[in-house]
Structure formats: C-alpha cells, structure tokens
C-alpha cells in the first residue's frame, strides 16, 4: 500500500451502536479529516448487530461497509483481524480510525502489524500534516506528564482515539450515503482464540461510568474497604456513578471495572468528586475531560488539588457523611 492510499476508514465499535457517543466521536474526526483532505469517509461495522446505518451517514460517513460473519457476533481479535485485513487491503485507505477502547487497544496495533504499517494509540489530538503529508498525532506519554507529536510514515495510518478527547459529530439529518456488505472468510485456522463467556461486573443497573454526568470516585485515602459505603452513599444521593483509583482496585476493594485512569476508564462527567485520591498523572489521564473536579483529601499538598476546581482538606470519613446529608437536603431527598 503506497502513495495512492486514499480515504478515511472509521471502525465502529459494535457495543457502542450506530448512534453511540464513541461512534459520533470517531466519525466526527473522520468527517473533519475527510473534508480537510478531500477524501471519502467509510464507516466499517463489524458484526451483524448494527442493523441501522442511517445514523452513520448522518454523522458523516459516505459509505458504510457491514462486515458480516458469525464469528464477529462479539469481539474476537483473531476473527476481527481475519475480516479486516482483506477489507482494508482492498479499500487501501489513507487513515484507519477507531476508538481507544478495550477493543481498539487490541485491534489497532494488531491490525497495524498485520498490514505492516504504523499505528499511533490513544491519541488526544490530530491534525493533517503540512502539504497533505502524514497526520500529526498527539499522544500523551509518561502517564500524561508529557505530550508527543508523532507521524506515521506508512499507509494506512492507523490511529486509536482517546474516548472523550474529541468533539462528537453533529448529525446532519437526512444525510445519506451508500451501504455494502463484506463477507470475509476468516481462515478458521487463524482464529485461535475463542471467547467462552463474558462476565459483566459493572453495575447492571444505574449509570455507566463512561456516560455518567456525575462521578464519585474513591481512593486509598478512604483508609479501608470498610469505608467504601461512604462513596456509594454519596453517589446514590447524587444519582452518580461510582469509580475508583487504581490503588483501590489493585487492593481488591472494588472490581476492576470501576477503575478510572490510564489503564482503566476514561470519563468525562460534568462533575467529578475525587475522594481520597492523590491525583497521580496516571489517574488524571482518565479524567482530563471532566468539566469540574471536586477533591476531598487529607493532604493539602495532594496533586489532585492542582486539577480541582473545589478542594476540601479533611478526612473523607467525616466529610462524606456530612456531604451526603447536605446533598440529600439540597435535592429534597432528605
């Protein structure tokens, strides 16, 4: 694949659906790039779960390719690679975009190596290179302390995008495009892994951490798992989702699915209340999109206060019950 590579391919996350937030973000980036580079935008949908393609057109896709195969019902890295390799070779795009989700983390690099091209993961910004050259991709490194601008010299340029880091596409109602089906034949010999079952740990009811408008997260400063209920009570009073720092999930106080940060989830709530979290860059990398941060910490020098809009220096064990009471009062739940 050389210089004639053309077009922007956006790989849609099946779990997110055609009108999901991630889809909007990825297609938003794709559409802008398509406009800037004057190249078509193709949305690639893995699996048969996505029946409706209208929203993809409205978000800016010129063409939708549905990749249909029984093994793609849920994400299987080998199957996805087997399906996408011939498709991408055929399409020969300039850029392949996907969200840096748990699927994207696995798929992006693997696809790049399969296609013998370069990849930039977890990008927080991108822009077209000068004179139509390679994209300039901004990545956060060393846990978020530094930024690097990198370019990919090979084609396609595979890019995974940090969730919440890019503005979602505004749908253009009535916008349409083409749709086609691609029926790959993933070589069964090369599908060497099998998803036996999926265990859902995140609270089935309640707000998804990634979508929550308010998130209350607890860290090591709570003292011990016996105090975790304080976080949950505050979250419940606020109708918020509960998250945790890595220190706490590593210590086994709460399931990993609550972990926020570089190796956990990226969230973008309007209000983020961090309780007993010191604010290591690796954690802050996951909340950089939060609009307002409230930090409650015993240590007045905790890094978190550098990011916080409001700070309370004090022991969470005393502040939280009082705060929960006040919130209930304020929201008329008392």
């Amino acid at each position: 694949m050389t210089a004639e590579a053309r077009g922007i391919v956006a790989i849609i996350e099946p779990a997110d659906g055609p009108a999901g937030a991630l889809t909007a973000e990825v297609l938003g980036v794709a559409r802008r790039l398509g406009n800037d580079l004057n190249e078509p935008v193709t949305a690639v949908v893995l699996g048969e779960t996505v029946a409706e393609v209208g929203p993809l057109w409205e978000f800016g896709a010129d063409k939708v390719i549905r990749v249909v195969h029984p093994l793609l019902a849920e994400f299987n890295l080998d199957a996805a690679l087997g399906a996408l390799e011939p498709l991408i070779r055929r399409e020969n795009p300039n850029v392949v975009l996907m969200a840096h989700t748990f699927q994207g983390r696995a798929l992006g690099p693997a696809l790049a190596f399969r296609l013998q091209t370069g990849v930039a993961t977890d990008c927080v910004d991108l822009r077209p290179g000068a004179g139509g050259g390679s994209l300039v991709l901004t990545r956060s490194i060393l846990g978020g302390n530094f930024r690097a601008e990198v370019v990919i010299d090979t084609r396609p340029q595979i890019v995974t995008l940090r969730p919440k880091a890019f503005p979602p596409a505004e749908p253009t109602p009535g916008r349409t495009g083409t749709v086609e089906e691609f029926r790959p034949e993933p070589d069964p010999v090369r599908v060497r892994q099998e998803v036996r079952r999926r265990i859902q740990e995140a609270a089935a009811e309640g707000v998804r951490l990634e979508d929550a408008r308010i998130v209350v997260a607890g860290g090591r400063g709570l003292g011990g798992p016996e105090n975790w209920h304080l976080v949950e009570e505050l979250a419940s009073a606020l109708g918020a989702a509960v998250g945790a720092s890595r220190a706490v999930t590593d210590a086994g106080w709460v399931p990993t699915s609550l972990q926020i940060g570089l190796t956990g989830k990226t969230i973008s709530p309007d209000l983020y209340i961090a309780v007993g979290i010191s604010g290591a860059v690796q954690h802050m990398a996951g909340v950089s999109a939060a609009k307002t941060i409230v930090a409650i910490n015993k240590d007045p020098d905790a890094t978190i206060f550098r990011y916080a809009r409001f700070g309370v220096v004090g022991d969470a064990k005393q502040i939280l019950p009082a705060l929960t009471r006040e919130i209930k009062k304020a929201l008329g739940k008392a």
Partner: peptide
C-alpha cells in the same frame, strides 16, 4: 473489557 471480563480460551 469495559463491563467486566471475558474468558478466552
């Protein structure tokens, strides 16, 4: 994965 984990053989 986002919601928990998968058992992969």
């Amino acid at each position: 994965y986002e919601e928990g984990y998968e058992e992969i053989a």
